[in-house]
Write a protein that binds this DNA or RNA. Structure first.
Length: 471
RNA sequence: GGCCCCAUCGUCUAUCGGUUAGGACGCGACCCUUUCAAGGUCGAGAGACGGGUUCGACUCCCGUUGGGGCUACCA
């Protein structure tokens, strides 16, 4: 029997990098073991779930190349079975009707909080006489259904944490079916995982405290429990749970910033999982081959954007410029830049090893195409300040030397000779002479060799930019 | 507060009782380049603390401290 795993997101928000990582780990496990990867959309919270969010999740997974074998299934469509499962438990007296209202419960909860302890349902409705329950039901009193928690140890051997143990008496009789007949999360999950024959539940650490409740349900329903693997959470740089406060947390954010899907996936795989050696760049086949649940870290991991960008730069450098053309064009379009029919491939080639994202590349290309895109960055400003008056005089002498070149001589080779001759004549290091030109032409201090840059930008435009920067 | 989880460089991690505690990102220096990156070399940088167990602990056990999660008729 091949393993069956699932990713079960709620469509109540965008696809969070943590969710994407959980999906990735499930996918890796399925691919490694020849198992089945199921996608289940947990939309039982009708208040917050939206179709748009479901679509974003689907798009995000597709973008990352995380393919599923079954689904997407929609949990809300299984309401009938969820209800039947709750009623079956009721019939066996493993669950009972609770007539307490939300208001009564809220009052009790507030009182508990005030007393400095936590609220735990006291099970009063579980002690109601059968006749009373019958008359109240007959009278039409609304009621939810609660499971009877049994005392004793509830423990499991977690595939990443080892043995985790809870005590039944620390848990209360929790609601499994709302008074409107819809299921509560823990019931829906267990009912669906049983129905879908899920063998391995690989999910976030934050579900550890749900697990004993779910195991109690498996026991009540007399079904075997799956293997649980609780993977660590992803934190922001301040060590707190990653949230909007930390900036980009949605997979789509990184897509828009020009991160390549394979780089994103590679980075995510290595966040909280290690193949055991020094490997960083992992092609798909190796990632799958090396994967094991045992390599998953117990400790929460901090999401380090700098490393993501470094990794993206690695993927960018390794990719032929022609393959980058399309995504770069998308970014240019979003920036409102019209290439006017120019062949962008050589431009991309010139800047890709100097870029960390597709957006970096597009920005650099735009600067070469359009003077109005030249914005002096921090390093450029710093250089101009450092040089003071020399910044302008350097530019002026470069301008003089370059404008002496005929249009036909405006080639990388001739430009290189001219520039070197100038440095010779002035007794300056080439770098000292060229950095101001770089800043004049691009606004920044990083570019391809200046002679090539001049050729790419063209004679008149280059001279104009140098003149403008010198004044 | 209660229950549970966690603890190696700033960050991601290797180590599964015996290592000068290794690698990667970031940072610094140097090399390459009469230029910027990339690349290469080198450097700074870690076992939270206290007890055990053991011939020997980063590694096993206990405690402390510090983080985190959960504590809904949300998922």
């Amino acid at each position: 029997m091949p393993p069956r795993v699932r990713f079960a997101p709620s469509p109540t928000g965008y696809l969070h990098v943590g969710g994407a990582r959980t999906a990735l780990l499930n996918w890796l496990y399925a691919r490694k073991t020849g198992g089945i990867f199921i996608l289940r959309i947990e939309d039982t919270d009708q208040e917050r779930s939206t179709e748009a969010h479901t679509q974003v999740i689907l798009d995000g997974l597709k973008w990352l190349g995380i393919t599923f074998d079954e689904g997407p299934f929609f949990q809300a469509q299984n309401g009938g079975r969820h209800k039947a499962d709750a009623e079956a438990l009721l019939a066996q007296d493993k669950a009972y009707r609770c007539f307490c209202t939300r208001e009564e419960l809220e009052v009790a909860r507030q009182a508990a909080v005030k007393a400095g302890s936590s609220f735990r349902y006291d099970g009063r409705c579980g002690r109601l006489a059968a006749e009373e329950v019958a008359t109240r039901v007959g009278r039409g009193d609304p009621s939810s259904i609660r499971v009877r928690m049994v005392d004793g140890e509830i423990a499991w051997d977690d595939a990443v944490h080892g043995r985790i143990s809870f005590q039944g008496h620390d848990l209360d009789d929790f609601i499994i079916l709302r008074s409107d007949g819809t299921p509560i999360y823990n019931l829906a999950v267990v009912s669906d995982d049983i129905e879908m024959a899920v063998t391995h539940v690989i999910r976030g650490d934050d579900h550890i405290s749900n697990t004993p409740k779910q195991i109690a349900l498996y026991r009540a329903m007399e079904k075997p429990t799956p293997i649980f693997a609780h993977v660590p959470m992803i934190l922001g740089t301040d060590g707190k749970k990653l949230s909007k406060r930390h900036g980009a947390t949605a997979v789509g954010d990184y897509q828009h910033q020009g991160i390549l899907p394979l780089a994103m996936r590679n980075f995510l795989a290595l966040l909280g999982w290690s193949p055991g050696g020094d490997r960083e760049i992992l092609p798909e086949a190796e990632m799958i081959d090396l994967f094991s649940l045992g390599g998953i870290q117990k400790k929460a991991a901090v999401f380090d954007v700098a490393k993501l960008e470094w990794m993206n730069g690695q993927y960018l450098s390794a990719r032929p410029a022609a393959e980058l053309l399309e995504p770069v064009q998308v970014h240019l379009r979003e920036m409102g830049v019209d290439p006017m029919g120019r062949d962008l491939v050589p431009l991309i080639d010139a800047v890709k090893t100097r870029s960390r994202t597709l957006l970096d590349i597009a920005t650099q290309v735009a600067v070469r195409l359009d003077r109005s895109r030249v914005v002096r960055d921090a390093k450029g400003i710093q250089l101009a300040m450092k040089l003071g008056a020399a910044f302008s005089t350097n530019l002026l002498s470069s301008h003089a030397a370059l404008s002496a070149l005929a249009p036909a001589q405006w080639t990388p080779a001739d430009l290189e000779l001219t520039v070197k001759a100038l440095a010779e004549r002035e007794g300056k290091k080439l770098g000292d002479l060229m950095q101001p030109v770089r800043v004049a032409l691009t606004g920044g201090t990083v570019s391809e060799p200046v002679n090539e840059l001049l050729a790419v930008i063209g004679r008149d435009e280059s001279l104009a930019r140098i003149r403008a920067a010198a004044s």
